[in-house]
Design a protein around this nucleic acid. Sequence first.
RNA 1: GGUAACGUGGCCGAGUGGCUAGGCUCAGCUCUGCAAAAGCUGCUACAGCGGUUCGAAUCCGCUCGUUACCUCCA
Length: 496
Amino acid sequence: MQQALSLYNTLTRKKEVFEPLHAPFVGMYVCGPTVYGEPHLGHARSAVTFDVLYRYLRYLGYTVRYVRNVTDVGHLVNDADEGEDKIQKRAKLEALEPMEVVQHYTNIYHDEMRKLNVLPPDIEPRASGHIIEQIEMIQEILKNGLAYQVNGSVYFDVPAYNEGHHYGKLSGRNIDDLIANTRATEGQEEKRSPLDFALWKKASSMHIMRWPSPWSDGFPGWHLECSAMSRKYLGTTFDIHGGGLDLMFPHHECEIAQSQASDNHTDAAKYWVHNNMITVNGQKMGKSLGNFINLSELFSGNHALLEEKYSPMTIRFFILQAHYRSTLDFSNEALQAARKGYTKLMNGLRILEKLQYPKEAGTPDEKLNEELLKLTEDCFRGMNDDMNTARTIAALFNLLKKVNSLYLGQLPVSSLTRGTFDTIRNTYTRLVLDVLGLREEPIGDTEEMLDLVLSFYREAKEGKAYDKVDLIRAELKKQGITIKDLKTGIDWAYEE
RNA sequence: GGUAACGUGGCCGAGUGGCUAGGCUCAGCUCUGCAAAAGCUGCUACAGCGGUUCGAAUCCGCUCGUUACCUCCA
């Protein structure tokens, strides 16, 4: 009954039925964070999007190897005067070892992802740990005549490559337009063409992140790590390559070029999948625009743009309520609506746990059964249509309405067949928990609730209702809490 | 300037040729000690102008507006 999963493939610009190269195995590579700063809402969207894809593929029964890298070397500061390694720059500012900075932000990234219930990838390779593989790939490209060496640096020869391939096939560009529109930037004298990009850069004497290579002490180019690491762990051709839309050009374009120009001779991935950006007041969230919101700020509410704090699950729901290929605009109103919607979905989960199928089935209401089964199919129809979680969630809400009616007795549970009952329960709970990756969040303040109980205790005691007093004491004891009747008042302690 | 998108009701956000998306907000009803929850009902839509079609939010063209990439930013 489940139709096939379709995905929009940037490479072909259309939705395609997903067919793995080597079913039941699926290889998926996603561009991870550059760990030089705090993760923000944009990171969350990419991570959540591909987390749901990962989860859904597993739900469908595939054995997935999910690789998401950590970029800890080699990206330049764009707004800096000189081409200084981004990570090195931060390190200098904070007087730390570069790897210390990297570790610091990697840890934060992991913590925030865990809060968002993003599953860890199966392999999380670091660029700095794969220098040898990157050097190897450069040698292949040199050997194939599609790169050249200048002063200890190696550049990819885009015009030469373009003679036999199409540089720009992913992002829909052609090399002539690109050349016509290239702006002159400094420090590019070594390149034969402004489109050429570095595979290896010689390090200046000040540059402390450096590794030996056949050409110089230096560091790998900025697109190479993904090519080298995806090949190492997933093979020369794998199923899915994901990342943010802003990476499509030049990053992913260069990856394809490198992959073709090396001994791979492939486009690296069969399906290229891109998630869209988060906007704030209609503008892309970006560091240079100064309008980005860190995840820690969202969770704490500590940011000028935030009216309140938003929980990780609210953020996750907010992201999932839009389709991953649409831009998603941030606003307090939208997040508050997301919080309520998320809560509603969780209440449905609790109701379904409590709902029992009666011992004796009544007369099945054929129309109702049919309607309910259609609603469950709608849930999957949304997922299968290019992972349209917005449609899936809409279908879940429609299903929830019926579930609530069943729970309140407005619709008799006995008019369902056992099969229908199980189907709606399984569809709802598995989609919400396993596929969408939403989970219940702890509610309220335990201490405040305890204070409330203690106030009832005090009242009971004052009213000499000793049955009640004993009961409260016994029940709290079960929770590992002892009530202490002190001269100064009533207090509690952990049971020793 | 080049390339690629987008413009849906009070807000967010699906849909892509005919069938109620959904969530939040607001109003009413049922239920109810009060309230909430839940259910039901209602409200304001497809940027504008032309065209194709029996029929368009959906296809085509133009206009207006917005955005992204083109800068070694995930």
